[in-house]
């Protein structure tokens, strides 16, 4: 999942530990939740994984989905470390149109919501595109803010959410390399050139 390194030199990537976070929420208990709390909501990578790693500038598409029946609307809020990832965009899916979004980069929150006129089963709610901005070794979870993450049916009854499954993004560090003017023209070459020059000058003196 790492971005290809540039041709200007080899970047010595330092592999960071991959942390898998499965953030399991508690049973929703807010008033007015009339349906059984049998639903779940998750955010996953393109391959369905719950952990990602990459280097500065890498972008990932993440899918927010609900495992629930009779879903007509949702609101979701995710918390993250803005020193590690940046939310580039939040877009709609086949199930829900583009949501109303607000990204609070300063506090590391992204909130979005949308509704539809009919109900749907196990919908994909939204697609988030995030970019890694952190230095190697840092990581962040994207975890649902439970009080601000809800599902509703088409008659405005809240669907209880039993599980909130987030994911973890880890920044893979890229240690800076000594910049060379051209390939193969490094310290060794300079040293060799110096020795050669010294030998030449010594020979001319004689």
């Amino acid at each position: 999942m790492t971005r290809p390194v540039g041709s200007a030199g080899r970047r010595s990537a330092v592999t960071a530990a991959v942390t898998v976070a499965l953030l399991v929420g508690a049973i929703a208990s807010s008033a007015g939740v009339v349906a059984a709390a049998d639903a779940s909501i998750s955010i996953t990578g393109a391959d369905g994984g719950t952990s990602l790693e990459g280097t500065d500038g890498d972008r990932f598409d993440l899918t927010v989905a609900a495992n629930a029946t009779n879903v007509s609307a949702y609101q979701a809020s995710l918390a993250f470390d803005p020193e590690v990832v940046e939310v580039v965009s939040v877009s709609g899916t086949d199930d829900f149109d583009d949501p109303v979004v607000n990204v609070d980069e300063e506090n590391g929150r992204v909130a979005f919501n949308q509704y539809r006129s009919s109900t749907v089963v196990d919908p994909q709610l939204a697609t988030l595109t995030v970019e890694i901005v952190g230095s190697g070794g840092n990581w962040t979870s994207l975890s649902f803010v439970k009080p601000e993450t809800k599902l509703s049916d088409d008659v405005a009854r809240e669907r209880g959410i039993r599980r909130f499954d987030g994911l973890t993004v880890t920044a893979v560090s890229e240690a800076p390399t000594t910049e060379a003017v051209a390939p193969g023209f490094g310290v060794t070459t300079a040293l060799a050139a110096g020795v050669t020059l010294y030998g030449y000058l010594y020979w001319r003196r004689e």
């Binding site: 807010s30 008033a31 007015g32 007509s72 609307a73 949702y74 609101q75 919501n113 509704y115 006129s117 809800k150 599902l151 509703s152 049916d153 088409d154 008659v155 405005a156 009854r157 809240e158």
Partner: peptide, 18 residues
């Protein structure tokens, strides 16, 4: 607070849309 449950959330969006 269209559904009069004391909080504003997505159920109010549905209620108002309806």
């Amino acid at each position: 607070d269209a559904d009069r449950d004391g909080e504003i959330d997505i159920t109010d969006v549905v209620e108002i849309a309806n």
